[in-house]
Every structure is written in structure tokens, then in C-alpha cells.
């Protein structure tokens, strides 16, 4: 009961913050601008393909947005000092941190839904004005692994990749499944963000660290050791969103990235709970 009270309070706090609203509005504005530009230029908007491309691009971005929202949910409170005020109301540090994780996870998943619904709506209007709701018949079936944008080894030393396209799969069902996966990945990333944010107390440090890991660290080490390039938190969390799905035209990623993502998140959560339970919220001698 008390856990629920604290969690709903954190959810209200999450919803009232400017960062989630700003990021959501930003993504929607970009989608609207892209569609308006396409319509103005007379480009034909092929709804299924445009939706698929937009979802895949936005999905990866939203995983990092989830991590950012999670990290800022606690780091902002460290910086404003309002965490001490909250702990004077609820001294159970574990409950407060878990409530923040739950709220960030639920909130980030909700952001995914809002963004995807907005993108689907904007593209539908665009397709109705200047385009079609028919699917493009020309889709890539297979590419070599070195040409793939995202890849994962099916064996530690392997590099082979397979792109599968299920042209028979119902498009709407796949869009919903994909949305669910991105929601799950964003929620997991948000929990990871809260945990790491509790440890480092800076939103920028969490996001900067993840991006650097994604772009250099994890990829470089994976390639260097001829190991799975999705072994680290930054890329494994994204892989949860864009992993093996039957979303036509997208790669069928293989590998234990889901286990990696859960392991990283669970590790960060345990570390954060232990540390947060013992740390001094106030810093200086007075």
C-alpha cells in the first residue's frame, strides 16, 4: 500500500516534469516537420514503409530517452536537494528508489506509446494527403553481415547475419509487437538509468557514458575480442527493442543480448539499492 502511494507520487512527479514532455513534443514536432516537408516536395508517402522506418529509428532513440528520463528522475533531485525533503517524508530508501524505478519504467513506456501513436497519426495524414497505404513490394531479404546496419553474432566467433522478411505477416500486428518491445526496452533502460543515476548523481554522465559505450566501447571491445558486439548495456538495451522480430524488412538479430540487458540492469539495481541505503544524502559537515 505504502509502496503504491510512493510510486503514484513518483508517477505524478514524472508526468509533471518538463523533460518527458519536452522530449515527447520534440519527437512529434520532428515527425510533423518531416511529413510536411515530404508532402510539400510532392514525395509519395508509402504508409507501411514510412511507418516501419520511423518506428525503427524512433525506437532506438526512445531506449536512450528512457535511460535519460530514468537518470534525471533521481539525479535532478540530488541536484535540487529535494531528495532530502522526500526522505524526510519516507525514510525507507529502498522503497523510495524502487518507486522511482517503477515510475520511470511506466513513464518511459508511456512516452513510447505517445510518440508511436503520434508518428502513426502524422504519417497517416501524410499518406492520405500525398501517398498510399499500400506496401512496397521491393524489400531486401538477405544481406551479408558486414553490410548490415545492426548485427549480432550467433556464435562468439561468428559474423554471419540473416535478414528475414515475412511478407505474409500482418503489418498491424507486427507494429503492435514492435511497439511493445520498444516499451519494454525503454522501461528496462529507465530502470537502468535510475540505478546508475543514483550512483553517479548526474543525468549527463549517464547519457554521455551510454552513448560513448554504444559508439566506441562496446563495439570496439566486441570486435577486438571477436565477441558479441551487443555485450554491453548501451547496445544490448537497444537490441531488446530491435531484436528478432517479424517486422517486415528488419534484421533478425540473434544472440544473448536479452540476458546481457537484464544482467546489466539487475547488477546496477542491486548496486544502487545497497549504496543508496547507506549513503549520506547531505554532504558537508554542519
Amino acid at each position: 500500500m505504502r509502496m503504491w502511494s510512493v510510486t503514484t507520487s513518483e508517477l505524478m512527479r514524472f508526468a509533471a516534469r518538463r523533460l518527458p514532455r519536452g522530449l515527447t513534443i520534440g519527437v512529434v514536432v520532428v515527425a510533423i516537420a518531416a511529413v510536411v516537408t515530404a508532402v510539400a516536395q510532392g514525395t509519395e508517402i508509402r504508409y507501411p514503409d514510412a511507418l516501419e522506418g520511423s518506428f525503427l529509428g524512433a525506437g532506438q532513440l526512445l531506449v536512450y530517452v528512457g535511460a535519460a528520463l530514468g537518470a534525471s528522475a533521481i539525479a535532478a533531485e540530488w541536484n535540487t536537494g529535494s531528495l532530502a525533503t522526500l526522505l524526510l517524508f519516507d525514510p525507507s530508501r529502498v522503497r523510495v528508489l524502487v518507486a522511482k524505478m517503477l515510475a520511470a519504467a511506466i513513464g518511459s513506456a508511456a512516452v513510447v506509446v505517445v510518440v508511436f501513436v503520434a508518428i502513426a497519426g502524422v504519417l497517416a495524414v501524410g499518406a492520405a494527403v500525398s501517398g498510399t497505404f499500400e506496401r512496397d513490394s521491393g524489400v531486401v531479404v538477405t544481406v551479408p553481415s558486414d553490410e548490415a546496419d545492426l548485427q549480432i553474432a550467433d556464435e562468439p566467433q561468428g559474423t554471419a547475419e540473416l535478414l528475414e522478411v515475412d511478407e505474409e505477416a500482418p503489418f498491424a500486428r507486427n507494429a503492435v509487437i514492435y511497439t511493445g518491445r520498444v516499451m519494454g526496452a525503454a522501461a528496462l533502460a529507465a530502470v537502468f538509468g535510475v540505478a546508475v543515476g543514483a550512483l553517479v548523481r548526474r543525468t549527463a554522465a549517464v547519457i554521455g557514458g551510454l552513448l560513448i559505450l554504444a559508439m566506441f566501447g562496446e563495439l570496439a571491445i566486441g570486435e577486438l575480442l571477436r565477441f558479441d558486439t551487443f555485450w554491453g548495456p548501451a547496445r544490448s538495451l537497444v537490441a531488446v527493442a530491435v531484436g528478432p522480430i517479424e517486422f517486415a524488412g528488419f534484421q533478425n538479430l540473434q544472440g544473448p543480448y536479452l540476458a546481457y540487458a537484464f544482467a546489466w540492469t539487475a547488477g546496477a539495481v542491486v548496486l544502487a539499492l545497497v549504496w543508496f541505503s547507506r549513503t549520506e544524502v547531505a554532504t558537508g559537515p554542519r
Binding site: M1, S5, S9, M12, F89, D90
Partner: peptide
């Protein structure tokens, strides 16, 4: 209100 909510 947020603090109040946390304690019911």
C-alpha cells in the same frame, strides 16, 4: 501535493 501523496 506530491509529498502528501507519498504518505497518503
Amino acid at each position: 501535493a506530491l509529498l502528501a501523496r507519498a504518505r497518503g
